[in-house]
Design a protein around this nucleic acid. Structure first.
Lengths: 346, 346
DNA sequence: CTGAAAGCGCTTACAG
DNA sequence: CTGAAAGCGCTTACAG
C-alpha cells in the first residue's frame, strides 16, 4: 500500500489495531502473546512486508550483532579464512565487517579499535599474525578500555587474551617425522621470517625432530624466507650453495616450496630422488606442482569458523546471555599429505 | 571522570555549559559556531574522550556509511580484491561488510538484499561472477525495490546496471597476439567453465585472434576446465590426446596453467620448445612455476579499489550529495607479462 | 495478556 | 550565532 517509504513498527501496530509493544513482542518472540493476536499481527507483518530496523535495535541494545575481522593491508590472509569466518558469522546471526590496518603501530591500532566501539561492534577477530612487535598494544590497557571481546588468530597463547591458533609445533613435527621415516638424514629448513611466531614454532619443531632422531641441525641448514615464492627460490639456492649433500628440505609454506622446486630444477636435481621436499599449508595449487608437493594441511576455512564461533561465545558471555566459562585457548591440528615430492615409492 | 559508561553528547553539553545542538554542530562541522565556543567544546570533547555513536547517527540519517561486498560461498575471489575494496572504503570513510551467498537462487538473493536494507547499507558490491543464471534476479524488480546502488563486478555490461569489469576480450587478445608473434601456429585453448561470461570472452578472443591471423580454430583445440589446477591437468591431457602437433596453449587462468604444465612434463614435452604456455591473472605463484609462466596481468586490487570508488560515487549521488551523472560502465585493462613458458629467447 | 510512557544518542527543522 | 522541541524506530521497565 505504501510503496516508497519504509514500513515501521507503528504502521504495523496501526494496521493491526494493537499497540507497538504487542507488535514488538511478536517480532522478538520475547513474552507471551495471545495466539490469536500473534497470528493476526504476523499476518499484517507479512502483508505489509515489515522488516525491523537493525540500527534502531542497535541503539536500544547497545549491541549490533556485528563482528569485525581486522587484517593487515596487503596481508597474507587466505580467502578461505574470510569465507569460513563469514559463513560461520552468518550462520550464527552475526554480520562481519572487514577492517584493514594500514600501519601496525599503537596509534593506528587505537584509532581502529575506537572506531569499532563507535559502531557498537560486538567482537573483534584479530587476524594480524603475531610478528615483530605487532602485539605490543595488548600490553596497554587498551583491551580493557575498549571492553569488547577480542579473539587473536595465529598468536602465541598468553595470559589475558583469547587465541585460536594452529598447533604449528605439532604440524611441523608431522612433516619432519615423515622425512625421517623416508630415510632422509640431512634435512634442511626454509623458514618464514624469524619475526613471526609461526615461523619460529616450525623452526623449533625442525630442530626438535632432528635432535630426537640423533641428526644434525646446524644453523647453515636453515635459510630464512619471507613466505613468497621468490624468497623460496633464493633460500634454496643458499642452502645448495652451502651444502651439496642435503637430501631433504622442509619448507615453511607451499609458496616458498614452489620457489625451492624451481631452483632445484634449474640445478638439475631430481625430486624426490636427490632431494625430498615438503611444504606447509596445502594450498589448492600444491597438488599440481611439479612434482606434486607433499605438505602439511592447514584448514584455513576451519580456522575462520572456529575463531568466529569462539568469539561469538565470548560475546554472548559478555552480554550475559550465558554464564558458562569460556576457554581462552583453542587449538587446531594439521594433517600430513604425502605426494610425489617426498615419496619415492609413489 | 566517568570511566565505565559511555560519554554522550549530553555529557559534553553539560560539561561545556552549552546546548546539545551546539556540540552537535561542532562535531559535524555543519553550521557556523563562534570560534570561542568551538574551541571550548572541542577541548571538552578531547578531555572527556567523547566519540559520537554511529548507530544513533545511522538512525537519524537513514544512512550507515557502510557498504556490503557479497561473494559466493567457496568463491574464487582473490584476497587482493577484498583488500583493495576494504582499503578504498576506509580511505573514503566507509565500512565494508562481508556477505556470503549460500545458494545463488532468487530466494536467497532476495533474503540477502532485504537483510542489507534492514541495516541501512548504503551500497552493494556484487562480487559474484556473471555465470549461468546467477544474474536472473536482476531482471526482477528487486533492484528497484531495495533502492540501494549496486555495482556488479566481472559482469557483462547491460542496460540498467552499473558494472566494473576487466576488458577480458582485449586481455586475451594480448596473450594470443604474443603467441602468434612468437611464431606459434597451432594454438589451443583451455577455457574456464562455458557458463562464465569471462570464460566466454576469452574464448571469443582466442577465436578472433586465430581468425585474424588466418589460423585454424577447430573445436577440438578447445578444452573446458573449471578454473582449478586439476582441471588444467585433465584439459591438457585431452588436448594432447587429440592433437600431437599443438605448439602453444593459451590457458584461461594461471591455476589451470599450472596443471597444464604438469601434464606436459609428464609427457616429456619441453616448455616452451615443444609447446608454449601462457596463462591469465598473474597470481603471485606464477613467476615461480616451472618454467616461470607468461601471463596476462589482472590487477585484482585495483579492481576492488575502482569498484568501491565507483560505488561510493553512486551512493553520494543517491543521497543527493552530488548532482553529477555517474558512468554506468567502468573498464579495466590488462598488461602482458612475458616469462620463460612462452619465450624461447629468454 | 496488553498498553502508555520514557529512553537509546543523535539530528533536523524551527525559533530567537 | 545559539537553544528548546520533536523525531529517527525500536525496546525496556512499569502499570493494569
Amino acid at each position: 500500500v505504501s510503496p516508497t517509504s519504509r514500513i515501521r513498527l507503528v504502521d504495523v501496530a496501526a494496521a493491526a489495531n494493537v499497540s507497538k509493544q504487542t507488535v514488538s513482542r511478536v517480532v522478538t518472540g520475547s513474552a507471551d502473546v495471545a495466539e490469536h493476536t500473534r497470528e493476526h499481527v504476523l499476518a499484517v507483518i507479512a502483508r505489509l512486508g515489515y522488516r525491523p530496523s537493525a540500527s534502531a535495535r542497535t541503539l536500544c541494545h547497545g549491541r549490533s550483532y556485528t563482528l569485525a575481522v581486522v587484517g593487515l593491508d596487503f596481508g597474507f590472509l587466505s580467502t578461505d579464512l574470510y569465507q569460513g569466518a563469514a559463513r560461520q558469522a552468518q550462520a550464527l546471526g552475526y554480520n562481519l565487517l572487514l577492517k584493514t590496518l594500514a600501519k601496525p603501530d599503537t596509534l593506528s591500532v587505537e584509532q581502529l579499535l575506537l572506531s569499532l566501539t563507535d559502531m557498537h561492534i560486538d567482537g573483534v577477530l584479530w587476524a594480524i599474525p603475531d610478528a615483530y612487535d605487532r602485539c605490543d598494544w595488548i600490553n596497554s590497557h587498551l583491551l580493557a578500555r575498549i571492553n569488547i571481546p577480542v579473539v587473536f588468530l595465529s598468536t602465541a597463547p598468553r595470559a589475558g587474551i583469547i587465541t585460536v591458533s594452529f598447533d604449528n609445533l605439532d604440524g611441523a613435527r608431522l612433516a619432519m617425522q615423515h622425512l625421517i621415516d623416508q630415510g632422509r638424514r640431512r634435512i634442511a629448513h626454509i623458514s618464514g621470517p624469524l619475526g613471526w611466531w609461526v615461523a619460529r614454532e616450525r623452526i623449533r619443531a625442525w630442530r626438535l625432530a632432528l635432535q630426537e632422531a640423533g641428526l644434525d641441525a646446524p644453523d647453515s641448514y636453515l635459510a630464512e624466507g619471507d613466505w613468497t615464492p621468490a624468497s623460496g627460490e633464493r633460500a634454496m639456492a643458499q642452502l645448495l650453495d652451502r651444502h651439496q649433500n642435503i637430501d631433504a628440505v622442509f619448507v615453511g609454506n607451499d609458496r616458498m616450496a614452489l620457489g625451492a622446486l624451481l631452483t632445484a630444477h634449474r640445478r638439475n636435481l631430481k625430486i624426490p630422488h636427490d632431494i625430498a621436499v615438503i611444504g606447509f599449508d596445502n594450498i589448492l595449487e600444491s597438488a599440481s606442482f611439479y612434482p606434486p608437493l607433499s605438505t602439511v594441511c592447514q584448514n584455513k576455512c576451519q580456522h575462520g569458523e572456529l575463531a568466529v564461533a569462539t568469539l561469538i561465545r565470548h560475546v554472548a558471555a559478555h552480554f550475559g546471555d550465558t554464564k558458562d566459562a569460556q576457554p581462552a585457548l583453542q587449538t587446531l591440528t594439521h594433517s600430513l599429505i604425502v605426494r610425489e615430492s617426498s615419496a619415492s615409492s609413489l
